[in-house]
Amino acid sequence: MAACKPLGSGKECSFVDKDEIWKVHVKIELQSAKAWPNKWGFLNKSYKEMQEESNKLKDVVKLELPQHLKTRPPTPPEKYIQVGPSPPVPQTTQAQIGWRSAVPKLQLERYGKVQCGKKSFLKELGWALDACS
């Protein structure tokens, strides 16, 4: 199996190399999943015991929150959102296209056009652009 170097270092990985690397990762993952109960299975029992103990303590100790830490009930949306009447529905299907966006108050872009970021997560990591689908 040929060693693959990072992007931009000269030699690129072929599809066969990438497939072999993927097979090795899957094999290691399956082996780890089989070995986990023997190595770390005791953690499940400890976690369950701790969870039961925690539930018992919750029942015994009931704390009352101070007034300044309590949450207020939510304000009803009708108090700060007013919905006006819609313009009349057009008579033809041709006129229905964009009939609401023609009215400035009903446009979705109230705060200007949506702008997408120019950074790429994959570029920041130094991965190939087709690494994720």
Rank of each mutant, 00 (worst) to 15 (best):
V61I: 09
S54F: 11
E78A: 09
G117F: 02
A102K: 09
P104R: 15
K123R: 15
V89P: 00
K56R: 12
L57N: 12
P104L: 12
W40Y: 10
Q67L: 08
A95S: 09
G10A: 04
Y47N: 15
M1C: 05
E64I: 03
W99A: 08
C116Y: 15
E20G: 05
E124I: 06
L65F: 05
C4I: 01
K79D: 03
W99L: 10
I28H: 01
K11M: 05
C116I: 12
N44H: 02
L106N: 09
C4S: 06
G8D: 13
S86N: 15
F15M: 04
E64A: 09
Y111W: 14
A2Q: 13
P87F: 14
C116D: 11
D17Y: 03
P85A: 05
L30W: 00
V24C: 07
E78R: 14
K113M: 11
K23R: 08
N38C: 04
M1K: 09
Q82E: 01
K70L: 12
Q96D: 01
T71R: 03
K118H: 11
S54W: 06
L125G: 07
Q67H: 08
P37M: 12
L106T: 11
Q91V: 10
T92V: 04
A2G: 12
C4F: 01
V24N: 05
L106V: 15
W99Q: 09
G84S: 11
L125V: 11
V16E: 07
A102E: 13
Q94V: 14
L69V: 05
Q115H: 12
